[in-house]
Write a protein that binds this DNA or RNA. Structure first.
Lengths: 189, 189
DNA sequence: TTAAAACATCGACTTTTGTCATCGTTTGCT
DNA sequence: AGCAAACGATGACAAAAGTCGATGTTTTAA
């Protein structure tokens, strides 16, 4: 489990990282079951999670208690509610496990320590933030300019893995489409 | 013009910044006329801009050459295509002036220098990035969960200034609504 | 100042998307 | 294994959003 994270870091920062093992030791392994929450909106997000295995859903409830999924994150990626994590304010989003997952969590104190002790780790945060930002920008532009059918086609082209891995309901909520509409449009392809 | 930036920085980082004047001197003033581009998609974004006065539109073209506006940024804020600026890759978005504007531009080299010479300036970048990210997340969640009418109401509540300052066409494109639909719904409020 | 262009609004119509109820299938749980 | 719950597909209908053409208004630029 730790190996996945070690590989991930080495892949990005190279092999010459001082204190790599100390860094790795600051992460706490967490096992979550399918549908279990690791963050509920209103709470403060205390951790940044590295997903060693599994899949997480980041979402908000709309007024009718439907959930709208802002992001779906799979293994070998980072997931958190960075705004809450960084500011200490209550999170607006919730995060739950779509599948049983293996996570490595690091809290704020350890995160800060690491940024100071391991200079390169500062880059990790920047990378996480930049990747998250790029992802959001991309998503907005996709969203605003494509209709329901085009969004489905987009997902099939760029994330075909998600099409088979996730339930229709979840995909529809990720694409911002009603699940019945998703079902219909998918059929006519 | 420089005063606006000085105030902006002091407001965030406090008054005890070494080399503040040197920092400010790294910015190049740029005047842009209404409708003038400062970045076209396909080019590399070479600057981060501080808007001393005016208003910029960040947008992409969809397949029918309509533009869909990802962001509208007004004076006393930062604007850039951060992904391109950071990576040196071609920008996917374009940026143009909605009004005649006064900008202060800093290029990558100066930006890097400053991060090294003025330790606190590193924070500025992080703040810009975090603010941009938070903005995007907020926008996605608003967008996915609200219908056209609700999005208009949302804008009227949180950014009433934009409602009067911008053309209907631009607002509609920012809200992801057809301009005729926007006109109709606005009338029935 | 004035002609051209861009803008805003509106009605009539089309297309897309959402809702609801139903029904057979799959899945999860004990 | 067996039951309940969740899921997925679909038809009929309702609501929302988009398109187009016409018209009057405002801006822009020469």
């Amino acid at each position: 489990m730790i190996d996945t994270l070690r590989n991930h870091i080495v892949k990005r920062l190279g092999n010459d990282i001082e204190n790599l093992e100390i860094v790795l030791a600051s992460f706490k392994p967490i096992m979550v079951k399918r549908n279990e929450h690791i963050l509920r909106s209103g709470e403060v997000c205390k951790y940044v999670y590295f997903i060693a295995k599994g899949c997480l859903q980041v979402y908000v409830h709309d007024k009718d208690m439907n959930d709208t999924t802002r992001d779906i994150v799979i293994e070998d990626n980072w997931c958190s509610e960075l705004i809450s994590f960084g500011s200490g304010q209550a999170a607006t989003e919730s995060i739950k496990a779509v599948e049983s997952s293996e996570l490595l969590a690091i809290d704020r104190r350890n995160f800060q320590n690491m940024m100071e002790q391991v200079p390169q780790f500062d880059k990790v945060y920047k990378q996480i933030l930049e990747a998250s930002y790029a992802n959001s920008v991309y998503r907005i532009n996709t969203f605003v300019s494509l209709n329901a059918l085009e969004r489905i086609q987009w997902l099939m082209e760029y994330r075909p893995d998600l099409m088979t891995r996730l339930s229709s309901k979840l995909i529809a909520s990720y694409l911002g489409i009603n699940k019945d509409v998703f079902s219909r449009l998918k059929a006519q392809l």
